[in-house]
Simulated scan of single mutants.
Amino acid sequence: MRGSREGLLLGVALDVVFGDPRRGHPVAAFGQVAGWLERRMYGDSRARGVLYTGVLVGGAAGVGVLLEAVTRRPVARVAVTAAATWAVLGGTSLGREGRAMARALEEGDLEGARGRLSHLCARDPSGLDEAELARATVESVAENTSDAAVAPLVWGLVGGVPGLLAYRAANTLDAMVGYRSPRYEKFGWAAARLDDALNWVPARVTGLLVVACSGGRAWRVFRRDGALHPSPNAGRCEAAFAGALGVRLGGVNAYGGRVEARPEMGDGRAPEVVDVRRAVRLSAAVTLLAGVLAGVKR
């Protein structure tokens, strides 16, 4: 059974009004379970990682199947879908973090901004100046617009509550174990590849939604530069944002001692502090458009 469109739209509205719950967030609870299971299953092998990822993502999907099985009435199905959508969406929290970064940078509080960057991405903030912090924030807002808002709605449409929960489980595991570090190079391989696969379509949908909100310049950069990024998905989002905002994204990034030199995307100037709030507003517009489209009856 496919997702309840009314439930998805209501879930988006709940996220806009309430944001993430301050305590007892289901995603945080899942992260605790994942951490507990990692301590018991970890091994420096892909096979262990495949089993670990399969158990957790399959378990999340199974919970969704059970919830749909016990809520066959339309009103109950809408309510459960709305609750699940609210639990897995992060668009409002993303905007809140982006605005917090903007305030810190506007006030010249570089240490505060460096301290908050970990809320948005895994980039090493030490030594980043105002311009680099602004770029990191704009890039993170762009990528996370797909991860936190558009992708859950896509998978909710495709797979209902099981799709919502399975996607968020896979995305959370990628954030926990999917990075290329000595510990997770093999164990996190399955989580990273699964997240790439699940985000392939949503990332491109996000790029098109940015174009719909912004116009032709976003489309040109999206088409031309989207494939330059080492990630098969993040580049589509970042390129579209670069075109929409008229800025140039990409460059040298540091991740826990590992340095990556990424191609530049876009033709404009380097991002400035003012562009952080512009990126947050664009992300909100894309999220709203995605929610409306998800709720429209065919």
Rank of each mutant, 00 (worst) to 15 (best):
G11L: 02
A13S: 11
A13N: 08
D15H: 08
D15C: 07
G19M: 05
G19R: 03
D20A: 15
P21E: 10
G24N: 14
H25M: 11
P26K: 03
P26D: 11
V27I: 15
V27M: 10
G31P: 01
V33M: 11
A34F: 09
W36M: 12
L37Q: 04
L37C: 10
L37H: 06
R40T: 13
R40Y: 02
Y42T: 05
Y42N: 10
G43K: 15
G43I: 08
R46M: 07
A47P: 11
G49M: 01
G49I: 02
G49F: 01
L51T: 00
T53A: 05
G54N: 02
V55L: 15
V55N: 05
V57C: 00
V57F: 06
G58Y: 02
A61Q: 02
G62Q: 09
G64Y: 05
G64D: 05
G64H: 06
V65M: 13
V65H: 12
L66W: 15
L67W: 09
L67S: 05
T71S: 15
R72E: 12
R72Q: 13
R73N: 12
V75R: 15
A79Y: 10
A79T: 07
V80A: 14
V80Y: 11
V80C: 10
T81Q: 07
A82W: 06
A83I: 10
A83Q: 07
A83S: 07
A84Q: 04
T85L: 08
T85D: 07
W86A: 13
W86N: 07
A87E: 05
A87T: 05
L89P: 00
G90K: 04
G91F: 09
S93G: 15
L94D: 01
L94W: 10
G95T: 08
G95W: 01
G95F: 03
E97A: 12
G98Q: 03
G98Y: 03
G98F: 06
R99P: 06
A100Q: 07
A100G: 12
A102G: 09
R103V: 07
R103Q: 14
R103H: 14
A104P: 09
E106H: 11
E107D: 12
G108L: 04
G108C: 05
D109R: 05
D109T: 11
L110M: 04
E111L: 12
G112P: 00
A113E: 01
A113P: 00
G115Q: 06
G115H: 05
S118Y: 09
C121M: 03
A122N: 11
D124L: 03
D124R: 02
S126M: 10
G127V: 00
E130N: 04
A131G: 13
E132L: 08
E132M: 08
A136L: 03
A136T: 01
T137E: 01
T137F: 00
V138Q: 04
E139Q: 09
S140P: 01
S140D: 02
V141G: 03
V141D: 06
V141A: 07
